[in-house]
């Protein structure tokens, strides 16, 4: 299975991922911290299936998107807390 490589930006760094990869999986190649909780704790994807909302990041300027539910797209801008 050799899906084409997609390039996206995560906190300003370029990350490559196969088409079909989720944003959550792409982030994990870069760092394990997705967001800060309401009291400032580091958090990352947890349920992997869209129910826990721990993987929320900003995608293309819109905050609080579930990274595990969104496939990577060429040129996508992702920003995590920290």
């Amino acid at each position: 299975m050799n899906a084409p490589l997609i390039r996206l930006q995560i906190n300003g760094c370029t990350v490559e991922a196969r088409a079909g990869t989720s944003v959550a999986a792409a982030i994990a190649q870069h760092s394990l911290i997705f967001r800060r909780s309401t009291t400032g704790q580091p958090r990352a994807a947890f349920c992997g299936m869209g129910v826990c909302f721990e993987c929320r990041v900003a995608i293309d300027g819109i905050g609080q998107r579930r990274a595990c539910m969104v496939p990577v797209r060429e040129g996508m801008q992702v920003s995590c807390d920290d």
Binding site: R18, G20, T21, S22, A24, A25, A28, Q29, G48, M49
Partner: peptide, 8 residues
């Protein structure tokens, strides 16, 4: 699920 999504 995450592994199948490409989680390293």
């Amino acid at each position: 699920a995450l592994a199948k999504q490409g989680w390293p």
